[in-house]
């Protein structure tokens, strides 16, 4: 029995290592070729160079796209996190009649194909005489980020001891100050994590930005437009490598905030979609 367990553990362990390699190795081709001194993305490697990074950083259009993405990302992170706080507070604090279908509706953008959400919003925006731009992109991003903000914040609101709030009431604080002095500090790591994660999603999002944007693109759309020109590909790889590193850094930071003061047993409460 024990020996069987060991064999199973070893096989599964080996599988797990291979699986993680499968997850990461394909993506590593992007940074690999971004340092390759050749305009063609192919083996054998010709030698190391940083010139693709230099040409990329010198590109004015890229700077504008980066600023656009930062603007949209910050708008999205702020709005979706505020809505996430309100929503998470409401569903964890009160027992609402019909809560299940209501929460399911808020989570729906996780599964509906983004192209359909984008086209539906496009119809409304253009029929109402609105214009496309960074605001319409941010609106689309908020829709897909609110479910993530809700999930992150709900686990944080659920995780903290309700009796702290009750103690505050008993000591004479009103609801407003109880929120700011007791609840808010306790859920703050969740709020920071939500801001970081929603920013990352918005920063990397392509479909909404592609269909709801004007000719003034965000970074992923700028990258998409570059893909049509083979001679610009190495620059795209360099840009992609930078974006990957930035995302990884932000997400690890978010995870660190999210796990603060919570026990390891709560690891499974994050549902992603």
């Amino acid at each position: 029995m024990n020996r069987n367990m060991n064999v199973a553990a070893r096989i599964l362990g080996a599988y797990a290592v291979i699986y993680v390699a499968y997850l990461y190795v394909p993506v590593l081709f992007l940074p690999l070729f971004s340092f390759n001194d050749s305009i063609y993305i192919s083996f054998p490697l010709r030698g190391w160079t940083l010139k693709w990074y230099q040409t990329m950083f010198a590109n004015e259009a890229l700077h504008r796209a980066l600023v656009n993405s930062l603007k949209v990302g910050m708008m999205t992170a702020l709005i979706s996190t505020i809505l996430g706080i309100l929503g998470a507070r409401a569903v964890t604090r009160y027992q609402l009649p019909g809560q299940k279908p209501v929460v399911a509706m808020i989570m729906l953008p996780l599964v509906v194909p983004e192209i359909i959400l984008a086209m539906a919003m496009l119809i409304v925006i253009l029929r109402m005489g609105g214009s496309l731009g960074l605001v319409s992109i941010a609106a689309g991003h908020v829709l897909i980020c609110v479910p993530f903000a809700m999930v992150v914040l709900m686990s944080r609101f659920e995780g903290f001891d309700r009796s702290l709030e009750e103690a505050s009431y008993d000591l004479g604080e009103n609801a407003w100050w109880t929120f700011w002095r007791v609840t808010f500090p306790n859920v703050l790591p969740g709020i920071v994590a939500s801001l970081l994660l929603t920013f990352t999603i918005s920063f990397d999002e392509f479909i909404m930005a592609f269909f709801l944007g004007s000719t003034n693109p965000t970074l992923p759309v700028f990258m998409w437009n570059q893909l049509r020109f083979p001679k610009l590909l190495p620059g795209v790889l360099a840009l992609g490598a930078c974006i990957l590193i930035a995302s990884v850094f932000i997400v690890l930071l978010a995870e660190w905030f999210r796990r603060r003061n919570t026990s390891e047993t709560q690891t499974g409460d994050m549902t992603i979609g």
Partner: peptide
């Protein structure tokens, strides 16, 4: 429950405005 829904209303309203209404328009 009413207080809860009042708290939830901005989130629900936004999902309604950005998803439900557009899908109906579609």
């Amino acid at each position: 429950a009413l207080r809860g829904y009042l708290l939830l209303s901005p989130t629900l309203g936004l999902v309604g405005a950005l998803m439900c209404i557009p899908i109906m328009a579609m």
